[in-house]
Design a protein around this nucleic acid. Structure first.
Lengths: 186, 186
DNA sequence: TGTACATCAGTGAACGCGCGTTCACTGATGTAC
DNA sequence: TGTACATCAGTGAACGCGCGTTCACTGATGTAC
């Protein structure tokens, strides 16, 4: 294929990180390097020209997924009370929807990558980024009466259990129960 | 090594299921057949004399882990109000402890196996058993004001996030926040 | 602006390794008499 | 109760395959003049 322009090369690299962040959320971090590269329209051989190891890509892809999540949240932390509560409620409704359950690739990395992070060896870049992302997300979810960490735990737990029981009616029951508990709506 | 008595063979098989149920919770279902057999003190060759596939073992090991959990809960569903609430509080305190966070092998399968179940293809035995186990556990957690499903979601989410962020102070904060929200104690 | 050549992004074959699964073999157990 | 032999639990080598990573190669891009 020959050499490719610097701009194109930069774009290719970005595409690898983006599609990896989707594939890792969808299938876990054990997706193969060959599949990751193929998803970005490349062959596996060039991987090590751009990334020092698969581990390194996991770190970058995790960071990318959390960045997306932060953009998605949109609203700033210092927003005024009423609007903030409304933004929280809107996000929780989307978070605990069957659509979110069924498309982990576009979804919350805190939920999708949790077990991979738990099994990630030692103190890698990925874990650091993940922990920071969880902290930020929880802070955004704080209310006057409930710790954002508890609300996030309920959301992540409900999503993870709904995914694991998908195909059974229980899956929807879990989402509905958690939504109702967190937003006061069925 | 020659033939082994039927009683011994039966015991060996049980040991494989038991140690697999620990290893799967600890490291995920992608632990190799060779490692599973070694953990039970056997070599990998004999595996297919006792199990039709690795999938089948995952099903049995999942069932075994949930059976253990049910025994661990001890108290019957129809227990009287006060005692039941006390048993629930006791279990929640253990569930959200750093000890439970740090030893997934003896811990809750609903939390430890969630992502593996979500990625398990199709409608296997393992998923069915898992879903049933989650339903039972949630039923046991029901109170007059809160759906057991929501309480379980909070517990599972907190445990899973605490494991993924282990090594950071955030990990303990998550456990403490959830414990306090669920039992009213710090 | 045009030419000559060095650079290097991406390719595809290859590396050593571990996977799930199969199979010929072993020798103690279980059984028929 | 004792003997002869069939059974079969467990072993270890082997299968085809996919993994993460390396590397010689290609040819268009970028640059020096």
């Amino acid at each position: 294929m020959g050499r490719v322009s610097q701009a194109q090369a930069e774009e290719n690299r970005k595409r690898v990180v983006e599609s990896a962040s989707r594939l890792f959320r969808e299938q876990g971090t054990q997706v193969s390097v060959a599949d990751l590269m193929k998803a970005a329209g490349l062959t596996h051989g060039g991987f090590y020209k751009r990334f020092s190891s698969k581990e390194a890509l996991i770190g970058e892809a995790t960071a990318h997924a959390f960045d997306e999540l932060t953009e998605g949240r949109g609203a700033r932390l210092d927003e005024s009370g009423g609007e903030r509560a409304a933004a929280q409620k809107a996000l929780i409704d989307v978070y605990l929807s069957t659509a979110h359950r069924d498309s982990p690739a576009d979804g919350c990395p805190a939920a999708a990558l949790a077990s991979d992070m738990a099994r990630e060896p030692g103190e890698g870049e990925a874990r650091r980024v993940y922990t920071e992302g969880v902290r930020d997300f929880a802070r955004w979810l704080d209310t006057d009466d409930t710790d954002g960490l508890t609300r996030l735990a309920t959301m992540v737990g409900a999503l993870v259990l709904a995914r694991a029981t998908n195909g059974s009616p229980l899956s929807e029951e879990i989402l509905t129960a958690a939504r109702s508990a967190l937003t006061g709506t069925a």
